[in-house]
Amino acid sequence: MNRAEREAAVRRVMGERPVRVPPELYPDAVRRGERLLRRGRLARRTMWLLVGLAAVAFAVWAAYAHPWVEPPSQTTPPVDDW
């Protein structure tokens, strides 16, 4: 099926009357949609909580370790007074 045939098939399907959905499916669809929204909201809140905890952990580490300070020299200075 080439592109023109696919486009014609899509136009034919879209031009037909929409299929009637049984009314008893509506409450199930609403319940499922609400559950998906709740799960997404919970996932986003959990992600932001983890990001916040990581930022706090980094700040505490940085305050304790002082990574911006140059580390002390590992060699001793020369001794001149012997």
Rank of each mutant, 00 (worst) to 15 (best):
L37D: 15
F58R: 10
V56G: 05
R41T: 11
A57E: 05
A54P: 03
L53A: 13
R39N: 13
R41S: 14
G40Q: 11
F58Q: 06
E24W: 09
L25D: 14
A55Q: 01
L37M: 13
M47L: 12
P22A: 12
L53R: 10
Y26L: 15
W61V: 07
V51D: 00
R45P: 06
P27N: 05
A57R: 03
R39Y: 06
G52N: 02
A57L: 09
R31G: 00
A29Q: 08
R45D: 13
G40N: 11
L50C: 11
A59F: 12
G52K: 03
F58M: 12
R41C: 03
L49P: 03
A54H: 03
A57W: 07
A29P: 00
R32W: 08
R32H: 11
A54F: 09
R38G: 00
Y26N: 09
A55W: 04
R45A: 12
P22N: 03
R32M: 10
D28N: 03
L36E: 15
R45F: 03
P27R: 06
P27G: 10
R32S: 09
R39L: 14
G33N: 01
G52L: 11
G40K: 07
G52Q: 01
A29Y: 09
A43T: 13
P23A: 15
R39E: 13
L50F: 08
L50E: 08
M47R: 14
Y26V: 15
